[in-house]
């Protein structure tokens, strides 16, 4: 496919200080080591202006990723426009994104749900653009599947909790992130040099 095209992904959570900064960094890393050129960003529905939570920074540092420079920001229409994938940490974030910019509904998922769907239907086929692939995954979805909250879709907010809770959250996100990266990379012609070196 057009392997030159850089994927544009935005990850959303509530404060943009705990879950989404970790998911942003992990997904960026997981895609890059598989040779997928991607631009991963994050934003929150609350509109805080802050660094990432110290626990999140510490946990990511333990995984060799520095998110110290991260600054939280409010999710806006502009951030959503032109993205290939919108990934919420919980259903509420997918709803918030769809309410801000209804056109992104078809390519917006919770991380857990997206990984499940990618596993069931497979990654992008051949040169299928990721945005089209995402629309295919969500084609038979009812809005009620994204309403309320669900322990099987939502990644619980670790804010105010211990370092160990952040570590657990990071582990969950990391597993999902690498699974998603594998699915996306499987259908793409990857940058062979990169993938050889990093894998």
């Amino acid at each position: 496919m057009n392997s030159d095209a850089t994927l544009s992904i935005v990850v959303i959570c509530t404060g943009n200080i705990c879950r989404s900064p970790m998911a942003e960094a992990l997904l960026m890393h997981d895609l890059h080591v598989r040779g997928v050129r991607a631009d991963v960003a994050s934003a929150g529905t609350l509109g805080l202006d802050s660094q990432a939570d110290p626990n999140a920074v510490a946990v990511m540092a333990g995984r060799g990723i520095d998110i110290w420079p991260h600054r939280s920001r409010l999710l806006t229409k502009e951030i959503l426009s032109g993205t290939d994938l919108v990934i919420g940490m919980a259903r509420e974030h997918v709803r918030a994104a769809a309410l801000l910019e209804s056109s992104c509904y078809a390519r917006a998922f919770t991380l857990r749900d997206l990984v499940r769907r990618a596993h069931r239907f497979g990654g992008p086929a051949g040169d299928e653009p990721v945005g089209i692939w995402a629309a295919r995954l969500s084609s038979h979805r009812d809005v009620s599947e994204l309403m309320g909250e669900s322990p099987f879709d939502d990644i619980a907010d670790p804010i105010g909790m211990s370092r160990a809770d952040f570590e657990r959250t990071a582990a969950v996100i990391s597993d999902l992130s690498s699974a998603l990266a594998v699915s996306i990379a499987a259908g793409r012609v990857v940058d062979v040099d990169r993938s050889d070196r990093d894998l």
């Binding site: 404060g15 200080i17 529905t45 609350l46 509109g47 309410l99 801000l100 907010d157 804010i159 105010g160």
Partner: peptide, 26 residues
């Protein structure tokens, strides 16, 4: 709800930049 954020982060960003529901927190 979002109460944890209220206690932990007392300085929300400029409400002018918010739009729709997602800005209500600020």
């Amino acid at each position: 709800g979002a109460s944890s954020y209220q206690y932990k982060y007392s300085q929300p960003s400029d409400p002018a930049s918010s739009s729709g529901d997602s800005g209500s927190g600020s």
